[in-house]
Write a protein that binds this DNA or RNA. Sequence first.
DNA 1: TAGATTGTTAATCGATTAACAATC
DNA 2: TAGATTGTTAATCGATTAACAATC
Lengths: 212, 212
Amino acid sequence: MTFSEATISRLPLYLRELLQIQRHGEQRVQSGVLAKRLGLNASQVRRDLSGFGSMGQRGVGYEVRGLIQTIQQVLGSDRSWNVILVGVGNLGRALSGYRGFAQQGFRLVGAFDIDPSKIGEKLGSLTVLPLSDLEEFVRAEGVELAMIAVPAGVVTEVTERLEMAGVTGILNFAPVMVRRSASPVTVVNVDLAIELQRLAFLVLQSRDDSES
Amino acid sequence: MTFSEATISRLPLYLRELLQIQRHGEQRVQSGVLAKRLGLNASQVRRDLSGFGSMGQRGVGYEVRGLIQTIQQVLGSDRSWNVILVGVGNLGRALSGYRGFAQQGFRLVGAFDIDPSKIGEKLGSLTVLPLSDLEEFVRAEGVELAMIAVPAGVVTEVTERLEMAGVTGILNFAPVMVRRSASPVTVVNVDLAIELQRLAFLVLQSRDDSES
DNA sequence: TAGATTGTTAATCGATTAACAATC
DNA sequence: TAGATTGTTAATCGATTAACAATC
């Protein structure tokens, strides 16, 4: 069971739509329906899904429940992940309250900050801990993933400490690319300003198109 | 001056690195340096940048200042955009305080919520306005872009209202895909849970790799 | 001139799509 | 059986990369 880069990036999208379809009470879905909802081509959807082996029935479609289970298994959201948050600013707070995470098996088990005024503060059911507790906590709780929402200047330091402590994946929201030298840590960078920039560019482009 | 999809998605990344390089005091940069910083191939960088016409000097490199200006122009971040925020929950608050926006020409000029308890609240220098003021505000202030951070259930309604009011671009942070029928509005969807899912998958994959 | 690096071509690689036989 | 939809092939399209002549 191996998938292309492009297919992998679409699996979470399929999963989201399928969960929605399931909530709607549908038991089956066709490639054409999924394609339309996601703005893709039906052939593309069938090709993506065929990576799972035979999941569909010709003339009928795909069983929603089965597809969901399989995709969740591939993505690792059939199991639970212990996640910590480093940096309890505005963005960190937003992340800690984000509903979507828990639904996909991500359990926020700890939150850290360096600012003494924030230590001890409540974040839902969590208490903000000092950054100095980071390493011990990661080991004791078996933390695998970390979200970092700290100022750009301290990203490198925090990343290194997480790495040393044994975290295996980092979701970085600071506007600097985390470079991992030759370490075994996987990093995904999310830059909100870049998304806004992409939007602005697309808007300009669609204006040009409609003029010509 | 026309760019491929793939190149466009990299332009904001080039811009970010170039700004960093400039802050460092460097006046010139080579394709190989940019490539390394962004994890790309040097040929790819040269090919991307060659879309601007001749910006580099053989044997020397590219002038940082000139590249920055050109990319900003292409992306539309050489001018200023009026942006509003709809939905002042945790995420909305985080977005309103995000430093990166202003730096790239995005001016947050208004914030809206439907919850009466939030109306009148201060958000930096802004005051949260009731959703009922949306249309008038958009027209009066010449708002072009909107960020929406509202519950999934009201995304469609909010989107339609923004569309009718004349907004041309929407950055959607709610975990539902905004579908634009045949409207002229450009939408970019950002789903934070999906990024965490991608991370988890990549972590699983790197474990498999290192085992085999 | 000698060394360095661009700009661009041609080759390769990967992803999308149309089409249709297989089959429910 | 007739209608529908999958799974898969082959064709197309687009993006990446190596290589090197052009030129600073």
